[in-house]
């Protein structure tokens, strides 16, 4: 609302400026671009003849959260699974293109997928604590399996604290992981993923099986984890994407349709298909 133009009844004479106009400031040198933590170049994933991910190129800055949204079957899970080579084990799956973490190509020869998954951790849709293990053993599992030394008890406590679970389980660390509630199990899985000190955390619908309170805890956790990790989260809930992420990528039929700052995607998307999806016009 432009200020009501001061209607000048009897216009005063224009005052003579007392100072000369300020000199134009020289433009500041552009800030050097932060390199991407995760960079994807022309990624294609095939399941036999099915071309599931089509020419996706994007980058994720360090300590940011990227939310991946899109209708069922759009390839969002396939996409994040490609970020830690989960398709390696799927018969008939083929990945083309390049995925870099800190400039290192994950699909280059000589990269050990097991070591890679220590750097790029994953949390799945359904909490999947190891059923025969205690809470403590679940968190320590990655350390044991990877032969990582150090004070495991300390690491376990640290990770459970980071996953905002410590206070709830500190008195029953020897109980089965599966004895916890769904939301607690999911935080246990996050603690387990954190134990091997990943740099990137992939989350595939981490809250879809949880009630609103447990969901809020996971989301709060994502805000905290962002301080340290780079996070890519797949979610069905657009409100969740809006709440937790810095950037949002919209996938449709295996293609990246649009990616941008989350506020922009939800208030003013550039692409018609994004608009239709976020306003609920897909059907």
């Amino acid at each position: 609302m432009s200020p009501a133009p001061a209607v000048q009844i009897m216009p005063p004479e224009k005052p003579v400026p007392m100072v000369s106009a300020p000199q134009q400031q020289p433009p500041l040198a552009p800030e050097p671009e932060t390199p991407f933590k995760v960079e994807v170049q022309d990624l294609n994933v095939y399941f036999r003849a099915n071309h599931a991910i089509r020419h996706v190129t994007l980058g994720v800055k360090p300590q940011t959260v990227l939310a991946v949204i899109g209708p069922s079957g759009c390839g969002k899970s396939t996409f994040i699974r490609a970020l830690n080579r989960m398709h390696d084990l799927v018969p008939g799956a083929r990945v083309e293109g390049r995925v870099f973490v800190d400039g290192e190509d994950l699909y280059a020869r000589g990269i050990d997928p097991v070591l890679l998954r220590r750097r790029v951790g994953m949390v799945f849709q359904r909490p999947n604590p190891f059923p025969t293990m205690s809470i403590y053993e679940n968190v320590a599992a990655g350390l044991t399996l990877n032969g990582i030394g150090g004070n495991h008890a300390e690491i376990v406590e640290h990770c459970l604290r980071q996953a905002a679970l410590w206070d709830e389980v500190k008195d029953r660390l020897r109980h089965a992981g599966t004895s916890l509630s769904g939301g607690q199990q999911q935080r246990l899985c996050i603690a387990r993923a954190l134990a091997v000190e990943p740099e990137v955390l992939l989350m595939d619908e981490p809250a879809s099986a949880l009630d609103p309170i447990a969901t809020a805890k996971i989301e709060e956790l994502i805000h905290e984890l962002k301080e340290k990790y780079t996070i890519v989260i797949v979610t069905h809930s657009m409100q969740q994407a809006a709440r937790v992420s810095d950037n949002t990528a919209f996938f449709y039929l295996g293609e990246l349709i649009e990616m941008g700052p989350t506020a922009q995607i939800f208030t003013n998307p550039r692409e018609r298909r994004t608009e239709d999806y976020v306003t609920g016009k897909f059907g």
């Binding site: 409100q239 809006a242 939800f266 208030t267 994004t274 976020v278 306003t279």
Partner: peptide, 9 residues
């Protein structure tokens, strides 16, 4: 409804 995009506007 938590409207988004053009609906929110």
């Amino acid at each position: 409804r938590q409207p988004a995009a053009s609906d929110l506007r």
